[in-house]
Amino acid sequence: MARACCGSGARDWFAALTGSLMALLIAGTFAAVADSASEEAIAIEEAWARPMPTGRELGAGYVTLRNAGDIADRLVAASTPRAERTELHETTVIDDVMRMRPLDGGIEIEPGGSIEMAPGGLHIMFLGVAEPFSAGERIELRLEFEQAGERTVVLEVRARPNGDSHHGNTHGDADHGHAHGEEGDHAH
């Protein structure tokens, strides 16, 4: 009986070991999947920045963020080696008056939603830029998300948005100078 006891004890121990190993493996796989899922939940598109006039040490950059995940995420900070300070700002034009304010709480992206930064709206503001961005340059930008963590994108420096559009309404027609798409949404 002792042998049976001990034998079965060893089997139990073995089963427990394999069990926990498998559990660890499965958990690890899930963690990895979850990790990559949260990393890919945020897609970054249309990343560009404006060339800066000589002598200006500030400027704006724009990105489009899509959240394909099931939970809300938040862009909390941005940085680039090219600027001393990088802030998240919003410009509004209401009753023909332009105002710009810092967004201290970051920018939330709802699950399944997207944020389109564009002139006259949300932007990433660069302050203390020693070497002004010039057209054709590529600027490395790090974005910090509450959920997705840190991501790096490259901003293309160009005078006007892709497709010559305003407000980021037109996408993917970079070769067409006069596409206006659905641009009838202005108050004026």
């Binding site: 200006r56 034009v93 710009m100």
Partner: peptide, 17 residues
């Protein structure tokens, strides 16, 4: 104004175009 990063260069680039 020249310290305006968003609307002012946008409009001046538009006028240029």
């Amino acid at each position: 104004f020249t310290h305006c990063p968003d609307i002012c260069p946008t409009t001046l680039f538009e006028i240029t175009s």
